[in-house]
């Protein structure tokens, strides 16, 4: 894929998703918000994936962002959606920064398991917290948009959609920039041979730490957006099945481009919704079958379809 095409896609990206928001039917708006929110988490996972790291505990940061949205307005008079999302993202980023000191020392299965362990500790704490509703969770207060509280619920939804679109677009731009930078390009190098990276004069640990923080921050933003959209937070957002879903969507999307996680996330949500409608007792089977099909026939994820159609080459993995 040519860099020109990629940057074109990014430039037109925001107007396209915003325009979609105006024309989408009511039911699709919510699906759109959730897809964008989860897409943010997957974007972070993509970053780690390119470095050869898989986190089975990304639900930790997703849930941390969500719980921030739930708890913060109870103590501070903040109801602005964008502000809440930013604060939650920063908080999740700090959490990732703190845990990063330990996480950055591990690779492969040990990294994955340590992430899982941290997320399950957080899950355990939440389940034990009766004041936070234990496993039932609690409702999130109504949010405002730049001082404006829409009367009509559907206007509210569309405002949130716009917020999510703007946040996701900035995240994509940032990650795209980062991947083009020296530190970003180190991802592949760390994956291939960490020792050589060290000989080049870079600290692989520091690079990994930075990626953990970016991924955590974006997951926090995603969790915050999801919490506002759903209007409810509970520990299931932190549970390993949620973390597994993010990894699932990463595989489904492919890691070829920063747009891929968002697209993959949309496809996943639509797929699941219709699977539930048509096979209420076997929808997991349908979703699992699709993952299997993607792994077997599209090892580069759904993105490789777009890549191939653009350039007509039969290579599943993008170089960058």
């Amino acid at each position: 894929m040519s860099p020109a095409f990629r940057s074109n896609l990014l430039q037109i990206g925001l107007p396209v998703i915003l325009a979609l928001g105006l024309f989408m039917p009511d039911w699709a708006i919510f699906l759109g918000i959730i897809s964008l929110a989860k897409g943010l988490v997957v974007l972070g996972l993509m970053l780690l994936w390119r470095t050869g790291l898989v986190s089975f505990g990304q639900g930790l940061f997703y849930g941390a962002g969500a719980y921030m949205v739930g708890i913060l307005p109870q103590y501070l008079p903040i109801t602005d959606a964008l502000l809440l999302v930013l604060i939650s993202a920063v908080a999740a980023g700090f959490l990732a920064f703190a845990l990063g000191f330990l996480l950055r020392r591990y690779r492969e299965i040990f990294f994955a398991m340590l992430c899982l362990a941290f997320s399950m500790i957080f899950f355990g704490i939440l389940v034990k917290s009766e004041s936070l509703g234990s496993t039932d969770g609690f409702n999130v207060v109504e949010t405002s948009y730049l001082g404006f509280v829409p009367e009509e619920p559907i206007v509210m939804q569309r405002m949130l959609y716009i917020t999510a679109a703007v946040v996701a677009w900035f995240a994509c731009l940032f990650v795209n920039r980062y991947l083009g930078s020296t530190m970003g390009r180190l991802s592949r190098a760390i994956k291939d041979n960490e020792l050589r990276v060290e000989y080049l004069g870079f600290s692989a640990k520091r690079a990994v730490h930075f990626k953990i923080v970016i991924a955590g921050t974006m997951a926090g933003a995603g969790g915050a957006l999801a919490a506002i959209a759903i209007g409810h937070v509970d520990p299931e957002m932190v549970w390993w099945i949620q973390s597994g879903e993010f990894v699932f969507v990463t595989i489904l999307s492919g890691v070829g481009n920063v747009i891929a996680p968002l697209l993959g996330s949309v496809v996943f949500e639509i797929l699941r919704t219709f699977a539930i409608e048509y096979a209420p007792q076997a929808w997991q089977f349908v979703v699992g079958g699709c993952l299997l099909a993607v792994i077997m026939f599209l090892p580069g994820g759904l993105w490789s379809l777009i890549e191939r159609s653009k350039e007509g080459k039969d290579d599943g993995n993008s170089s960058r």
Partner: peptide, 15 residues
Amino acid sequence: DESGGTTKQVTEYRN
């Protein structure tokens, strides 16, 4: 189906 967590419940309710 109610399985799959509250995010899914809210999504399916709206659907």
